[in-house]
Design a protein around this nucleic acid. Sequence first.
DNA 1: TCCAGCAAACGAGATTTACTGATCTCTAGG
DNA 2: CCTAGAGATCAGTAAATCTCGTTTGCTGGA
Lengths: 304, 304
Amino acid sequence: MSRKLTHRPSLPPMNALRAFESVARLGSFISAADELCVTPAAISQQIKSLETWLGLTLFDRHAQGVSLNDAGRQAVGQLTKAFDLMGDSVSGLLRTAKPHVIKIATLPSVAQYWLAPRLNALRHSIPNLEISVTTRQTPPNLKREPFNLSLFLTPTADTNGAICLAQDEIFPVCAPELAKRLHAPADLLNETLLSDETWFDDWPLWLSHIGETGPLSTSGPVFSLFGLALEEAKNGAGVIIGHGFLVEPLLKRGELVAPFSNRVTLDQSLCLEIGNRNEHDEIIETVVNILTDDLNATTRHNHK
Amino acid sequence: MSRKLTHRPSLPPMNALRAFESVARLGSFISAADELCVTPAAISQQIKSLETWLGLTLFDRHAQGVSLNDAGRQAVGQLTKAFDLMGDSVSGLLRTAKPHVIKIATLPSVAQYWLAPRLNALRHSIPNLEISVTTRQTPPNLKREPFNLSLFLTPTADTNGAICLAQDEIFPVCAPELAKRLHAPADLLNETLLSDETWFDDWPLWLSHIGETGPLSTSGPVFSLFGLALEEAKNGAGVIIGHGFLVEPLLKRGELVAPFSNRVTLDQSLCLEIGNRNEHDEIIETVVNILTDDLNATTRHNHK
DNA sequence: TCCAGCAAACGAGATTTACTGATCTCTAGG
DNA sequence: CCTAGAGATCAGTAAATCTCGTTTGCTGGA
């Protein structure tokens, strides 16, 4: 009945609020766009629609970006709480309804070379376990998105509350065959330098750390996934920068070798973060224990 | 860059969450549809999309409606808090940014006959005051929607925290000319009985309360607004059920008369509710004082 | 001073999402 | 057995949201 006399709902557009919260928290339209998986233009429009609806502006616009104004600063705290609550309620729902499902978010390369070898141990130790692995380039916001675990490279500065599994260490690796031609970094001049989109900067990074500033071209083939590039390297197609925790097993098996001793330690680690959990959630504890077995091999089996 | 490798955002559809929260709180798709100003079909689809996304159901379906299941019950509390927080942050934003704007939500008839005469007093007492009156059929959720005041008929049972301005009292009124023909309720048989959509039940209600169960037809012309019907009554077009707090001034001025002494007191009152406010918000205090002047005429001017 | 580069704004068209209106199902109650 | 009420379903449509290409405004370096 009163449904016909349609009054416009006096609520602001919610998606615009989410966009605002994201921009406010991250500090720029571009980062917010990344987080929400849209273009900055979409963010720009959402913010604009919100400001129009409210009849006031929320950001000061500068040439080099935006910054919250007083009004925006007032609102962001509560909004962040609200969206966190929302995310947490959904996570909680899924945890309770499907306690045997573990959702892990990680980098594609970590999933393939670090996580995959350990999945069998997990399935073996925990009957009925259902593991869902989601690969992405950026870590999820565990307060919002319903993942149980996240496994990403984290700058050493902000490893609070995370379990560090391995310091990140980079160095060139290649097929044993090819390595015979390499005696010093300068020899790389004659080789194909492989790289991938995620770690595109690894070659210049390693070269500059070892003091090599020569004419080495870092413009070899670029693969969309580290895994693809690494397979090529195994086939002898070129040299690639490997990350210690990923290539260690391959080195052990002799499928790859590290032609130089120059390892560069980066200021970041492979870190395991745990999402909000229910009380007495033994499954997640067990999973974490197994994944961290490499770290504290002596304290294994102390779960349950 | 990583913007291109579009991972689907791991968040549930927010509008579906809002629909769910509304249904959970109100207990039915239809009430939720009313609250959100959409059809029940829309709610049904939103709920369904949410349940599909989650991979679990949130309601038990019965023929006569839905009821929350365990999963739904777990989630609703947090979600309600989240949406309340969201609404509150927006309200706070508007209050702070535009402290001189007072938004009032009320019934159309109350706006016209009760509020309008008092607006001048408000404007007169508070310089620069900007009053925005929104009329609708159902009270706003003050935790969510950015109104400063709401003025609606509230059942006596749930007047907690509200200021009751007048008990609701209904009785027939008509033009003085027409009243000459009316000596007892039975005389209404020969008259046109006016009514409006909002208070369509007033005639049967009054008749049954005074013990009149006769053949009186209550099927006179129905106006979409009480105000229109009342104007017709003033013009002598028929008899209408008036609400005491609305027609009192018209009776005083002699534009209408109450032909019978049978007044029926309903179990509801005109109540003023105040939305979340900032500390030290003198303007809203003043407005409330002026609107409640009728009640406590002796304590007036005690604001400031 | 001029130019390159970054971040955001803008506009048009494409796409996705959400809503409506009509129809169908189920069941409690007459 | 029939009816009324609450949902579910479906197809067409309306609305919102997004993308792409371009433009603007500013800044820091040549």
